[in-house]
Simulated scan of single mutants.
Amino acid sequence: MHQITKSFAAAAVCLTLGHTAGLTATLGEDGLHKQPWFTITFKDIAEDIQTASDEGKRLALVFEQRGCIYCKAMHEKLLSDPEVTDYIKEHFIVVQYNMFGDEEVIDIDGEELTEKTAARKWGYVFTPTIVFLPEDIPEDGTVADSAVATMPGSFGKWTFLNMFRWVNEKGYESDEHFQKYHARIINELREQGRLGSD
């Protein structure tokens, strides 16, 4: 797997947003908020699925855009929470996409696109949108065809984190729909006295 180094990402950022428990988000020249643990790749989807699998993780794509207040909130409120980020980093590789960007993307079907034409092809129109890919490279189809789950928009901590948990636990293969899974986890959190904002 060809991988651009983290130092390249560090060079691309220009504004520190803040610190929470040692986690730092930055604002890149493209206007997107960055996490130091996001993975920078050549955006070849099949290759990225394989890399994630080799590391015992899953691939998640996050679509954002310049000036997106919901993306900003996601970074400042959710991705600054160690409970959220520790879980994601342990189980997922997250690759950021610019909804209107021009970086090259290679779809699962081999079509060469840009970030913005990929977003249109796959039908993603909201930011942030997080797309969860399968463990293994599909034999054919596109990202939209192959995604096991999609989370469009901004949510509270437990909805957000539970979606990552549900995908990691392969809830999409069970009879327990995400909403039922989420409700069960919320009830457990309530019983433990840990219920947050949602």
Rank of each mutant, 00 (worst) to 15 (best):
V84A: 04
K77A: 15
K77M: 13
P82D: 01
Q96I: 06
I106K: 11
I88D: 03
E112P: 01
Y97F: 15
L79K: 10
K77G: 08
L79E: 10
F100E: 14
E90D: 09
I93S: 13
E112M: 07
L78C: 09
M99T: 04
D102I: 13
V105Q: 00
D81L: 12
N98Y: 10
V84L: 09
V105E: 00
I108N: 01
D86C: 04
I108E: 06
Y97D: 00
I88W: 03
P82V: 06
E90K: 15
T85M: 12
V84P: 00
D86T: 12
V105D: 00
V84G: 01
E111C: 03
G101D: 06
D81I: 11
K77Q: 15
E83P: 00
D86A: 12
F100Q: 12
E83I: 13
K77E: 15
D109P: 06
V84D: 03
L78H: 09
M99Y: 09
M99L: 15
I93E: 08
T85S: 08
F100H: 12
I88Y: 03
E103D: 14
D107T: 04
Y87K: 02
D86L: 03
D86N: 11
E83S: 10
D102R: 14
L78W: 08
F92Y: 15
Q96E: 14
F92W: 07
D109G: 05
G110F: 12
V105M: 08
S80Q: 15
G110D: 12
Q96N: 08
D102E: 15
I108F: 07
H91M: 07
Y87Q: 06
I106Y: 03
G101L: 08
K77V: 11
M99F: 11
I88L: 07
F92H: 05
D109K: 05
E111G: 02
Y87T: 04
H91C: 10
G101N: 05
I93N: 14
V94F: 07
D102Q: 14
L78S: 13
I88E: 07
F92P: 02
E112S: 07
L79I: 07
E104R: 08
L79R: 05
